Simulated assay, not measured.
Amino acid sequence: MTPSAEQIVRAAARWIGRGARLDTRTFAGDLGISRSTLFRRVGNREDLMGEALWYMADRTMAGALRQWRAANGERVRDEAGELRCLVVMRRYRVDIAGNQGFRKLLNDEPTVGIRVLTDPAGRVQPRVMAAHVELLGLDVAAGGFTPAVSLESLCYAIVRLGEAFLYSDVLVGRAPDLDAASTLIAALVEAKEPTVL
């Protein structure tokens, strides 16, 4: 039986997760389908890579939110007073950065990896932004905080800032500093609107 597009994407995510290069000929053969069937189902290699990376990101974000709920239920702030969205986003970045297959992809194919991950019209970044809007929206709706700008603008800044720190080794040759990213993102989220003089 020919695998569905969803099954193909999940298989590609497993390949990336274990550090295997996503060669479409080998990958299609492993699935028992032709490259043309693979293309018809999920698009070209970068399309498939984007879908697989989004699948990984979505599962990582969902896992981080599950961890919060297991420890804190539906509270908006933990016992230390930190917002749910900040804790979940930090866990998400740490888990992404710690995924060895993901890091191998960026080390082996930095140009393709960054293009697929950060293309504003691609398959990853718009969905990551939407997931952040949804996450922060939970805290806004629960009265956890009032953003100084629209959620869309805030999440655009958060995602782009997170990318700059998460991929800094590839982008500018400097080690990722996830603590700095968390501090700056918290400042953005908890910012108060400036007083107009």
Rank of each mutant, 00 (worst) to 15 (best):
D179K: 03
E134F: 05
W54H: 13
G122A: 07
A131N: 02
L105A: 12
R77Y: 11
R66S: 15
L105M: 13
D179V: 11
G73I: 09
R160K: 10
A52R: 01
L48E: 02
E74V: 11
T60D: 15
R127N: 15
G162V: 00
S168H: 02
N72S: 14
Q100C: 09
D179C: 12
L188K: 00
F165A: 12
C155E: 12
E152H: 13
D47I: 00
G101C: 05
L48W: 01
K104V: 11
L184H: 10
K104Y: 07
Y55I: 03
L154I: 09
Y55K: 01
G122W: 00
A97S: 09
Y55M: 03
L86P: 02
P147I: 03
A141Q: 04
L178Y: 05
V128K: 02
A131S: 13
G98R: 00
A175T: 15
Y167M: 11
S182C: 13
G144C: 06
Q67F: 06
L83T: 15
G81P: 09
A70H: 08
L171K: 03
T60C: 13
D177T: 08
N99S: 14
Y156M: 12
R174D: 07
L117E: 05
L53V: 15
S182H: 13
G101V: 02
A180R: 08
V149N: 07
M49P: 04
T183C: 10
D95S: 14
V116K: 01
A148P: 06
C155S: 13
D95C: 07
L138I: 11
G98D: 03
P147S: 12
R75H: 11
L83F: 04
D119K: 01
L65I: 10
S150G: 12
E163F: 10
